[in-house]
Design a binder for these strands. Structure first.
Lengths: 336, 336
DNA sequence: TTGAAAGCGCTACCAG
DNA sequence: CTGGTAGCGCTTTCAA
């Protein structure tokens, strides 16, 4: 592949001049520009980004760490970062880190090796301290979907507890009295906090939720189905079901209907996340909107700032987001 | 950030030696290894992949060009490539190119600048010739979801025509006599070929499909809904509907049911792609499985081979895939 | 087993 | 406005 030297030689100028036209540098004669551009075209020249990154110490690259791309939630996250990359003429480097600390760490390390200017990291398993140390090393590091007080200015997160409360209020307002929950079996904060917020708000209204009406499963369609079966097997009736995420909620609806319950007439079902799926299901799923794409864009932009300016750490900055209730068809008023 | 020189200095050896332990090079004393590793840890040293890429002339990077990440189909494609990247200890570089030739070209160029060893490209708008020239320049280039005879050994593609035929056979076998189609309004090969295969097979069975019962729309939920409305507005009845993709098919089902038609009892609906959505819809969607993830993995592996070995161009190689019928609940036997 | 040194392709500084 | 040149951080001969 042709290099800058080839271009220089064939156009009879110095590499310095070629570099100048490459970067729209100042003070280049029109004649030189034309000459060089012509040769570049002839040679089919493409500058080497690695060499550039090496000398400029910036890679024009945004890194993302997520578990995988198949989960639409993470795809949206990546897409958000991709959008700002595109706008800034940068590239998206993707690194997947599964549910273990080692795997997350490795994914991050690969991004550091590539010297990403910005890294948007979704980590659930790495400890606070490890992440804090990492932030110390990588100026453009931003955490998404996680809150660590010491580096709050690098955390873009959703208030899951508040989400649970909003869910409870919605169902309460719909005159429901008997509740069930499906949560995720994975021991990360999110499901715990959502459930906690939900229960707290219920208690404030004087309603308790029976422990046996809280089930756990894998956070996907099948998990929702199985948890619902267990719920039904228990035999105690309920009129409102709050589910950890949309995929599980759709699985739950499926199982409920298979068992003769009409949603929402017999049972209201409320999801969480508002992924594409929720608009495609029948009945269309009522859910809490998790603005992950915008959050990802915000995270990327914060990382960009952090990596360029030496921002003074304004610890007052707060990147907390509150989920928004999206009322569709799977929840309705309970006539008593 | 610490460099190899820092490590060399602090451990009292040459950079050459440090490089050797970094790469598990041969002939390094145990003592040196330990010393160097210790210092690397102390310094929190991370090698610079850009510098490495520059000197080795390989970036250990796999590039992917797709329109976006939000479409689950393309997310699966990217995920396939990501899997082989991970297995080979390489990284995924993502470049989005929307539906224009310029945009696709730019996305590809960015990947070339980065000197990706392998590029899996999904391009619908670039001309055959441009792609052929590109393949000439980039040894690891592979096209996915496209067939160009001159570079057949770099094309991993699906036989859309055959897909249409399979669809027709399925519906015919189910005793259907009157058909409708929903296609995509985008003028790329895929929808045309699918429709063509479908119609051809129908004709072979002596059945014609009325032109007014072929509608076009955006390839998403709303597009499917609108196309279905137009179909119904036309007033002519049909018992089987073949739809361009799953999202449109789900939109179609939604509209059909809103208009009092039961799927599949009144009308059978058959989708295409077999994305996640199709398993979540009610009724579960019968569709044609497009093994995009495996195809993406294959494409990545082919690119890897192409980029390393100087494979002799075995033009007999054929990477054609045939979609597989997945019968779920949205199609059923038509009792006449 | 180790070190010195050349150089990957490019930018940026300094002279001119 | 242009050219010469010193590196960026690393790998890889070639000698020792």
């Amino acid at each position: 592949m042709a290099t800058i030297k080839d271009v220089a030689r064939l156009s009879g100028v110095s590499v310095a001049s070629v570099s100048r036209v490459l970067n729209n540098g100042p003070k280049v004669s029109k004649k030189t520009i034309e000459k060089v551009l012509k040769v570049m075209k002839e040679l089919n020249y493409t500058p080497n980004a690695n060499a550039r990154a090496l000398v400029t110490q910036k890679s024009t690259t945004l890194g993302v760490v997520i578990p995988d791309l198949v989960d639409p939630f993470f795809a949206s996250l990546a897409n958000g970062v991709e959008q700002v990359a595109r706008k800034k003429n940068m590239q998206l480097l993707l690194s997947t880190g599964l549910v273990t600390a080692e795997s997350e760490m490795q994914a991050i390390n690969l991004l550091i090796e590539r010297r990403c200017d910005v890294m948007v990291v979704h980590s659930k398993k790495l400890s606070d301290q490890v992440l804090i140390d990492l932030a110390n090393k990588v100026s453009g590091l931003v955490l998404i979907d996680r809150y660590i007080e010491e580096i709050a200015h690098r955390c873009v997160w959703l208030d899951n507890t508040e989400g649970g409360k909003i869910a409870a209020r919605h169902l309460l307002a719909l005159n429901h009295k008997s509740f069930a929950c499906i949560s995720s079996k994975y021991q990360i904060d999110d499901p715990l906090l959502r459930l906690q917020g939900f229960q707290n708000e219920l208690q404030s209204a004087g309603v308790d939720i029976e422990p046996n009406l809280i089930e756990y499963g894998d956070p996907n369609l099948q998990g929702g189905e199985m948890a619902t079966q267990k719920l039904l097997a228990y035999g105690k009736s309920f009129s409102a079901l709050f589910v950890y995420n949309d995929a599980m909620a759709i699985g739950a609806i499926s199982t409920l209907e298979d068992n003769g319950f009409k949603v929402p007439y017999d049972i209201s079902v409320l999801g969480f996340d508002d992924v594409l799926l929720s608009r495609y299901s029948r009945p269309k799923l009522s859910t809490l909107n998790y603005p992950i794409e915008e959050m990802a864009m915000q995270a990327a932009n914060i990382g960009l700032e952090l990596s360029t300016k030496q921002v003074e750490l304004n610890l007052n900055k707060n990147y907390k987001h509150i989920p928004r209730l999206v009322k569709r068809e799977s929840t309705s008023f309970k006539s008593s």
